[in-house]
Nucleic acid binder design. Structure first.
Lengths: 110, 110
DNA sequence: TCCATATTCAACCATCTGGTTGACGATTGC
DNA sequence: GCAATCGTCAACCAGATGGTTGAATATGGA
C-alpha cells in the first residue's frame, strides 16, 4: 500500500528509527549491522525496520543470507511538501534549501 | 519543556491534528469552533489541542470565556531541518509545494 | 552433512493513544 | 443570583506500540 502521511510521520516519531535513517544516509547496511549500536534486541530492530519499510522510508533486499537496508529518500517528499504548506509564515529553512541548491546546482555546470 | 522531534513528529502523525493545523492556517480559532467540523467529542479535540500545544505547534490563549488557538509555525522548523538532511537526495519540490497551496488554500469559493 | 550466522516469527507484557462519558470550574449575560 | 456557555478533568476502555524471549527458517561454509 502507498505510504501515507500518517505512516511516514509516525515512523519518524521514534528516535531509534530516525537514528537508523541517519545511519543509512551514510551507506546501505545489513540488519545485524544496523542493530549493532543499539542496546536492544535484534528482533526489536527488525520491527523498527518493518515500520520504516511500511512507511516507504527504506527498502530491504535479501542477498544471500544477508538482508540489506537502503534509504528511500523519496518517501520524505509528501511529508516535506505537507510541512512546507506552513512556509508562508516561516520560510522553511531557506538557508538549508539555498545551501542545497548551491551544493547541487553550483557544482553542476560544465 | 522544549518540544522535541519526537513530540513534533508524533503530533503530526495524526490526521485530525494535521487537519486542525490546516484550519488554523486560515485563522485563529476558538476551541469550540475547531471542534465543530469533527465527529468527535469536544474533550477529544481538547486533548488533540493539548498534544499540539505540547509539541509547540500551536499556542493557546484564554480571553474571557473563550480559549483561542493560534498556529506556531516556527515549531515545524526543527522537524523540517531534520528532514532536509535527506534533501541531498530529494530536493524540496517547489512544484509540489505550489500544487499543495493551490489544492489546500487556493480552492476558495468564488 | 552439520554447524554457525542472519533474520523473522510468535507469544507475551507494560505502557501509550485516542476515544468515550459525566462531573466540574470559570465566565458571561439576563 | 442563576442559567447557559466554554473548556478541562477524571475515570474508563479498546487497540496500538515498543520492548522482551525463545523457537523457527534460510542460507553459507567446513
Amino acid at each position: 500500500m502507498a505510504p501515507t502521511l500518517d505512516t511516514v510521520f509516525s515512523a519518524l516519531a521514534d528516535p531509534t528509527r530516525r537514528a537508523i535513517l541517519q545511519m543509512l544516509l551514510e551507506d546501505d547496511m545489513a540488519v545485524t549491522d544496523v542493530a549493532e549500536p543499539f542496546e536492544m534486541s535484534l528482533a526489536a530492530i527488525s520491527k523498527h525496520l518493518a515500520v520504516l519499510t511500511n512507511a516507504g522510508l527504506i527498502t530491504q533486499e535479501k542477498r544471500g543470507r544477508v538482508k540489506w537496508c537502503m534509504l528511500e529518500p523519496d518517501a520524505l517528499k509528501s511529508a516535506s511538501v505537507w510541512m512546507q504548506g506552513f512556509g508562508q509564515f516561516e520560510p522553511v529553512n531557506l538557508d538549508a534549501f539555498e545551501a542545497f541548491l548551491e551544493r547541487e546546482l553550483g557544482g553542476e555546470p560544465s
